[in-house]
Design a protein around this nucleic acid. Structure first.
Lengths: 304, 304
DNA sequence: TTGAAAGCGCTAACAA
DNA sequence: TTGTTAGCGCTTTCAA
């Protein structure tokens, strides 16, 4: 095509306000460039970071993310259906408990699905998750290394794979090493649940080291101990969180916790989708999110 | 159509795994059902709440939200362009400073745009924003009512309309009432900026009442005062935030602040879009987000 | 009640 | 290099 014509076309296009219609394009090209992000509780710092990183990665790779949020009551499968109606090129599920049937449906339609911290039993999808056993082990090591002798763990009642998993891995590890561990059930994974748990804890538990399965839970628990009950942290009780949300590092909290590489997780999730788009037959993979201990002010000083 | 045939069609559809293609449908119906959410800093609690509420509202009204995130460096207009390529039925911009030309383009294409807390000078869009004058006035009233006599305000250097607006409205109000007000410039609107500001504050300012233009800023400032400098809040210095994010209510912070009805704002934004879809010619509206004073532990006790 | 056909905006293939 | 055509999956219209 001659440069001359090219320019003429471009000019008139601009003049007419021409704009490519991706929707029409996708009809022919069989690829919409849309991807789905299924998330809930976007208002928790951890989830917000995760979704932000995922959206960024998708956009950077030329995909356009649709955000569907499933808060408690709503129908998760309905949302996935909706995504399929929009012919998404892939989706990332980071909330809820997707049913096997819905994953199968995606597989049949050749829509790559990456599950973040969802039940590993689900075949037909790639997984990005923390190694719950390693997490439980690390939590135990961090607390025992700082002088913990009696342990407790806050275990959310809702059956989220990763949260529940690390709680029980922690308990198992304690018991295996011959220590006592109190399991305190809590209603949810947020600040208020942690706060409430502190009330029960001071009455019932003799533990000197508490593993809270999320930072939000830990921060509520910490406030309950310190503000409501005058417990000295970390001298009377050590508190350990999980996630390393920004608030954990705030001076007034200085929460010791376990950092997880959420950014890496997002990048990896996007990569897994991209790779499966190019080769839908490749075997399913599981990526373990790196963890790192972060000792701050709610665990005791390391002994020399 | 006979019930018999209907059932037969539905059955075979199911068997074949038939699924409506919304993209193809939109080609004909001239409406994609997609809407855009342009946001940045999704990892701040305030923005996360806002985006979550917006997504929920869109979904509840049968729209499917595309989330595009523009962090600092990136090209905001590129993202809007992309949304237009996907023939969104409307969009909500809650970050960045959309240029006039881009808004005009949307208007020309008949794509409703709602700006949340963006510069009011932009015509051709509906607005949802806080009344900055009322906000400044309220902040002043709250502090003066609790015995404030010398004031300071943390004013972010970046020129966000609503944040900057309430800072200067506050200063104006102080001066108009014959009080001194120190204006402390800060680099951003987050925790770290607030923390850093506390260092400068204790050296330079004699103020007894500080208005921080966001809660995040306030919480950093508070930690700086209390933890780093041993300042007694609220007795030596009162601190007032803005937004009422969940962390403000945490026991260890107990931050006095100004609550804004973010949920209402989201609902209203979606409504404005819906209404403009049905009647594109209606005059542009501005909805003011309701505010409410929330006294907690960082302002002094009310005098009887 | 059912069937057939046109066309939405685009891409891909082929012909000129 | 340029022009033409068919067809992506759907809705709408008109005909049977």
């Amino acid at each position: 095509m001659s440069d001359d014509t090219r320019q003429k076309v471009i000019d008139s296009a601009r003049q007419l306000g021409y704009r490519v219609n991706f929707l029409a394009r996708s009809l022919q090209s069989r690829s919409s460039g849309l991807v789905g992000i299924v998330a809930s509780r976007l208002d928790t710092p951890y989830r917000a970071t995760q979704v932000r990183a995922a959206a960024r990665e998708f956009l950077a790779n030329g995909f356009t993310p649709i955000l569907v949020t499933a808060e408690g009551g709503e129908d998760q499968s309905g949302l996935v259906e909706r995504l399929l109606n929009y012919s998404v090129s892939g989706m990332m599920i980071t909330s809820g408990t997707p049913s096997n049937s819905i994953i199968d449906e995606c597989a049949q339609l050749n829509v790559p699905v990456v599950l973040i911290n969802r039940n590993v039993a689900l075949e037909g999808a790639d997984h990005v998750l923390i190694d719950v056993d390693a997490a439980g082990q690390l939590a135990f090591d961090m607390l025992v290394e700082r002088g913990g002798q009696r342990f407790a763990v806050l275990q959310p009642r809702d059956r989220t794979y990763s949260v529940l998993g690390r709680a029980s891995a922690f308990s198992d590890r304690c018991r295996a090493a011959g220590y006592c561990v109190d399991v305190l059930e809590v209603d949810s994974q947020d600040y208020d649940a942690g706060l409430a748990a502190a009330d029960g804890f001071v009455q019932q538990s003799m533990a000197d080291s508490v593993f809270c399965t999320t930072d939000l839970l830990a921060l509520g628990f910490l406030d309950g101990l310190r503000v409501r009950h005058g417990v000295s942290v970390p001298y009377q009780v050590q508190v350990l969180g999980f996630d390393d949300i920004p608030q954990a590092a705030w001076l007034s909290n200085s929460l010791s916790t376990i950092w997880q590489a959420s950014e890496d997780a997002a990048t990896e999730a996007v990569n897994l989708i991209l790779e499966r788009i190019t080769d839908p037959t490749r075997p399913h993979e599981t990526f373990h999110i790196p963890l790192r201990p972060v000792h701050r002010g709610t665990t005791r000083k390391a002994r020399p």
